[in-house]
């Protein structure tokens, strides 16, 4: 369980997050949505201890993120940042392999290799495994980064806009993979999505943020309604029902 209590964040005079309290139970997919600048990435990076907590507390499975040793947390939680850039010339397999560092500290075990291979298979990277990252397309690189986060094999997975650069095939593929690890392995996924229809189709719960606050929180059916979406995004959109799945016609 991720427990967030009274978390606020300021950069200079700007208040980025206002007194956020939130509990994300273990298991399932939670989607974070909201306009640009709402504070989604900031919240994720606080949970993943990438920036120091200014006020409030965050704990994961009871471990406070600000006092638990970094390497212990690395076995519990993995994060893929929104704007990850890999400037080093590493092969895909090497990059994915480094995600095992928290477990084996550099000496790959047989189990590590199995996990790495599975992750490469899962994201259709087996053919690209020996290519250097800097020779891949944007979408292939994004898949390699997602595969890396997967192979870290933590109970909690934080993904900040992982669908960026992915084509429809791989976007759907990634969401189905997330659904599978949530259902079969009991993983907890927190994912920032801009495509609210992906959120509607795959998430168990949607949390909408706006201007540093939580604007709405509920199941897809509760949340994807014209009036709520208008309050969050500032324009009116129709919502259709496709056999139980709400589909937001945000493009019209």
């Amino acid at each position: 369980m991720i427990r967030i209590e009274n978390v606020s964040l300021r950069h200079g005079s700007a208040e980025i997050l206002h007194d956020i309290s939130l509990t994300i139970p273990k298991g399932g997919i939670t989607a974070l949505i909201g306009p640009n600048g709402a504070g989604k990435s900031s919240l994720l990076s606080l949970i993943a201890r990438l920036q120091p907590l200014q006020s409030g507390t965050i704990s994961i499975d009871g471990f406070p993120v600000d006092t638990t040793p970094n390497r212990d947390l690395a076995r519990i939680i993995a994060i893929l940042r929104q704007d990850s850039i890999v400037a080093s010339r590493l092969r895909v397999r090497e990059l994915v392999g480094f995600s095992r560092f928290p477990h084996s500290r550099g000496r790959l075990t047989a189990e590590d290799r199995v996990v790495i291979d599975q992750s490469l298979q899962q994201f259709d990277l087996a053919d690209l495994a020996d290519r250097f990252i800097d020779t891949l397309s944007g979408g292939q690189r994004q898949r390699a980064l997602v595969a890396m986060a997967f192979a870290q094999a933590t109970d909690y997975l934080l993904l900040d806009e992982p669908l960026n650069n992915l084509d429809m095939y791989f976007a759907r593929d990634l969401m189905r993979s997330l659904r599978r690890i949530a259902d079969e392995n009991g993983k907890t996924v927190v994912i920032v999505l801009h495509d609210i229809n992906q959120a509607g189709a795959y998430a168990d719960r949607i949390i909408a943020m706006k201007a540093g606050r939580i604007a709405a929180d509920g199941s897809p059916a509760e949340l994807l309604r014209p009036e709520i979406l208008q309050a969050i995004f500032g324009f009116r959109m129709e919502v259709a029902d496709m056999g139980g799945t709400p589909v937001v016609l945000h493009f019209r």
Binding site: S45, A48, R49, L50, N70, R71, D72, L73, A74, R75, A78, I79, R81, S84, F98, S99, F101, P102, Q152
Partner: peptide, 9 residues
Amino acid sequence: RDASIGLGI
């Protein structure tokens, strides 16, 4: 930095 911290370094 972020990736390093994420991997427990």
